[in-house]
Structures are given as C-alpha cells and as structure tokens.
Amino acid sequence: MLGQVLKYDLKAVCRYLIPLYAVLLGLGVMVRLLGFFDNISIIAIICGLMVVALVLVSVFSFVLTGIFSVKHYLENLFKDEGYLTHTLPVKKETLLVSKVLVSLITLILTALVLFISLLIAFYQEGLFSEVIKVLGLSIYGMKVYEFLLFMIFYSIIGYLTTILMVYAAISVGYSKSSNKLVSSVVCALIFYFAMEIIYFGVLSVIVLIDPAFISDLDNEVFMMKDLISFFTIFMVFTACIGGVYYYISYRYMNKKLNLE
C-alpha cells in the first residue's frame, strides 16, 4: 500500500512544485541567453535583474519545498480530504512514512532542479575543478567528496527533522477540539525551544567532558576533521529528535485523531 499512497502524495505535491521548477529553469535559461547580448546595456540590466531573481528564488526554493510538504500534510490528513485519507484501509504508519518520504524526495528534486538551473545560468569550463580546488584548500585532512557527502547528509537530516517537527506540531495541535491552528503554532514554538535547550545541553556536556574542544575550534588552523566530529554528534542528536517527532506525529494521529 505504501507505493499507492506515495504515488498520490507525490502527485499532489508536484502540482505545487512544477511551477517553482519552471520558474527556476526559466530564469536559468534567461540568464544564459541574455548573457550572450550583455554588450547592449539595457539587456545587461535585465540580465542583472534576472540574476538577482534567480538567486532569490534559489534561496527560497528549499523553504517553499518545505512549505509545500507541510501544506500537503495538513490538507491531506487534517482537513476535509482527511475524511477520505483516514477511511482508507491503510495503516497510519504507512500514511506517515509516505509523507516523510515525500518531503525527502521533493527536497532531492528541488536540489537537482536548482543545481541544473544554476549550471544553465552560470556554467563555464573549468568551474568544477575550480570549486574542488577552493574546497580542497579549506578542508584540511578530508577528501572533497567525503566532505560533500557529509554536508549533503547533514542537510537532509536537518531538513527532515525540521519538517517532522512541524508535522508533529500539526498532529498535536489538530487533536484538540478547538483552536487547532493556534494550538499547532504554540506546539511548534514549544518544540523549537525545547530543541534549542537540548542542543545547549549537549554542547555543555561536550565542553564539560573535553574543555579543550572549544579552544580547538577557535584555533585558526583547526582540522576539518575535528569540526566534522563535532557536527557528527549534532547530526546524531538531530536524527534522534527527528525520531521523537515521528513518534509524536504517529501517536497523535493513531490515538488522538479528532477531525473537525
């Protein structure tokens, strides 16, 4: 059943995403095309504006992707459409796993489209070797691909945990009999501050155990490896918190559902 649920979830979210992707790719193509005529001043100005637009859309594309995932979660499970979704002969777990997969898949899609769009706009020969050279200079003690993989993995975990936090807040907020949306927002704030406190706690523990850690970070020629081990601890904690949010979302959807 997961396949079926995922199919319909993806279809629904892609309805929102396709316009975003069209804009991203369109801007990429425009920047590249107008770039051929930048000896004409008016076109150069337009091209400049396009570049600004492309950068802005790029920055917000991940935020938008997250918003679309959350919007779909809310509408599909807790609004009128929920009357259909929750009466399907499908486990709550399947519904939830599908929503998490959708946010992961759309994140990857957006990253790919963004990458392609930026390549269309700005690719020049030698770009990749240049980037690898610059990166290599700033990450002592680590291979470039290792570093990139780590960053991608780290971003994905961070993104998913944020999305799961909002999912959990909605599940809890919408289990209330009234003021569902307000309850969700309050709940999200509580989760957010709880998360901050936990991070602070983790940091404190690390400093207590190894006081030299922070001073190492201040050292100008610190090893990238140390930074990575520091981030790895955070990544594991973030993933654990994500697991907790998943459980909260599941628990409230399974035991405390309260459709309006």
Partner: peptide
Amino acid sequence: VDSKKVISYLPERTY
C-alpha cells in the same frame, strides 16, 4: 484497517 475495509462511508461534506 480491517474495519475500514468493510465500511463504505459517505461523509456529510465533500472530500
């Protein structure tokens, strides 16, 4: 899941 398999439900709103 088992109860939902055997119930066909028409809600009072359009879903």
